[in-house]
Write a protein that binds this DNA or RNA. Structure first.
Lengths: 221, 221
DNA sequence: GCCAATAAGTAACATGCCGCGACTAATGTC
DNA sequence: GACATTAGTCGCGGCATGTTACTTATTGGC
């Protein structure tokens, strides 16, 4: 254990699983430590400092841009952290696809991650489930996109998060009914095919808001 | 700061928000500390020990029964913990209604909690949201009930969690379609009215399992 | 120019789920 | 035996979703 680690004996790390949708796959930002080992970005928790704020600052430091959305995961003391820290608090964040990885780090597909310390490997493996858990009540999918996006882009992100193909007409009908997006007067030319209109995330009030019903459909797996 | 607290300087607590459905309200188990102050049960995190396991053991210790379901909340360093601990990891657990509070503790309605330390007050306030977050993908409602329950009991728990009245016929139709319960040959007499059949939670395989679709309905609030 | 290929966007029908009211069934009370 | 009370079911109408087919707009090849 290094001198740095012993200074922090008994303390906790804040670990960041930064996610981005790239080429139809979910990617995670992995940095290279001094020795060349692959690690997720982390920082030490400071007594009295807000953990979520620290995670946001870490995202800005490592990425040069703020995370568009962030959620805390389950703190864990299991398995080995790169630092040997006893306790780690994971934060899962998302950014748009235009954010490039700074030098010393790279986006890796969540299907083919490099060798991480076991605790960080578990955090990365749980990231998609964390996004799925919150995507119905938080604009996770929209935060994985730039401010202006096409409806096909949005559908692809939902397909990525759900792990399932969706039907275009149904998707757009449901989206329309939810009053979540407004069209802009910009159109994107993709090369071939008809240009696509760009939309913005702009949720509006809706009657019957929050009156959700029972959902048994996910219970029996 | 006491000697005990300074021994644990920089360490983390595991805090337990034990929930139970009583008389149509969600209740939380609150214990009385030596000085008479109201506190949620907590323990100190031990290096190398699994946090979830520690939370389960804490539940058994304080309640004399295992928590029927348990989930981790977001670790927090904000506000004041009764011990002055820098970091706390909340766990939200549920038990059935037959579990009585041991001496030195009591069930309090989440609407009328006694004065807790600010950090624990926040944990208790977040408990219902945590249950709501997981009730669609985990059998939270069923774990708030005894092993054998009536469908009216189950509906009341769902109404409690959703904060909304449900229609009997719709509720039962959806439940039937989900293959989640099986009838027993026991019936419960409530005093007046027709006796109710008792059911058990016994989820069975279902075709098209896990093929969930988009849900925009909770997004715009 | 004209046509095929490609992708965006729309229309219309079918199916299924859900809210709702009305009904039946079984028990205790007066 | 009438009534209140609670459990449980039936069926209709409306709304949401799945699906297929169609229209529109662009690029590229001949």
């Amino acid at each position: 254990m290094s001198a740095k680690n012993s200074r922090h004996r008994g303390a906790a790390t804040i670990d960041l699983v930064l996610c981005s949708a790239r080429r139809g796959r979910l990617h995670v930002l992995v940095t290279r430590a001094a020795g060349g080992a692959a690690v997720l970005p982390y920082t030490w928790a400071v007594d009295g400092a807000d953990l979520a704020r620290a995670a946001r600052e870490l995202a800005r430091d490592v990425l040069g841009a703020s995370a568009a959305w962030l959620v805390s995961g389950a703190a864990t003391a299991e398995k080995r952290h790169p630092t040997g820290a006893a306790l780690s608090v994971p934060y899962v964040g998302v950014v748009g696809p235009a954010i490039e990885a700074p030098v010393g780090s790279a986006w890796h597909s969540v299907d083919a991650l490099p060798a991480l310390a076991p605790r960080q490997r578990a955090m990365a493996a749980d990231a998609l489930d964390a996004l799925r858990l919150h995507m119905d009540s938080a604009p996770v999918a929209f935060r994985l996109l730039p401010a202006a996006f096409t409806l096909s882009d949005l559908q692809q992100v939902y397909e990525l998060l759900l792990g399932r193909r969706l039907h275009k007409a149904s998707f757009r009908r449901a989206l329309q009914a939810a009053y979540l997006v407004t069209p802009t007067d910009s159109w994107r030319r993709e090369g071939r095919g008809r240009p696509a209109q760009l939309f913005q995330y702009a949720p509006r009030k809706r009657r019957g808001g929050g009156a959700r019903s029972v959902r048994f459909d996910l219970l029996g797996k």
